[in-house]
């Protein structure tokens, strides 16, 4: 039994197997696996007795439910008007230089993915970004470098 199948079984037991519980289950899988693989979508469809295409259609609608391989930490920079006015591009440049990847890519070692997202609701502390579910605001290039280094170390410590 793959770990994902087991995870999906528990999520289904916890949330229920109706169509309206689909989104919580999808979120549960993304929280763990960082993305929805083809296999996991099929398992969800089997568990909830739903057509696979419906699961795929619903999942691809929401920007947080990724369906491509993602790194362990997903960095999401807010690109809406106030953040982009307050220097979001410099932040992106700094991260790109540090991690050697462009927006939309994942680092070769699979630790970080860099994405852009729409308004995070921190316009008064722009620019802002999310790393997985943590919010970081009033970013400056130095602050970003510092945040990333301790993520890399934290990452290092876990290994």
């Amino acid at each position: 039994m793959y770990p994902v199948t087991e995870l999906i079984k528990n999520l289904a037991d916890r949330h229920g197997r109706e169509r309206r519980n689909l989104l919580p289950i999808l979120q549960g899988v993304v929280e763990q696996e960082k993305y929805l693989s083809e296999y996991s979508m099929i398992e969800i469809a089997r568990e909830l007795d739903l057509p696979a295409s419906e699961v795929y259609g619903t999942a691809t609608f929401y920007s947080f439910l990724e369906y491509k391989k993602m790194g362990k930490y997903i960095i999401r920079i807010c690109k809406t008007i106030t953040c982009s006015m307050k220097g979001k591009n410099q932040i992106i440049k700094t991260i790109e230089d540090m991690l050697k990847i462009n927006v939309g890519e994942t680092t070769p070692d699979g630790n970080f993915s860099l994405l852009q997202t729409n308004c995070l609701g921190f316009c008064h502390k722009a620019p802002a970004m999310l790393i997985n579910y943590e919010v970081y605001t009033d970013l400056t290039p130095e602050k970003v470098r510092e945040i990333l280094t301790n993520y890399i170390n934290k990452k290092g410590r876990e290994e």
């Binding site: 809406t80 106030t82 308004c119 609701g121």
Partner: peptide, 11 residues
């Protein structure tokens, strides 16, 4: 849902 850009009062 508060997705409107520039709104952060609900939070």
């Amino acid at each position: 849902d508060e997705g409107e850009p520039g709104t952060f009062k609900d939070r």
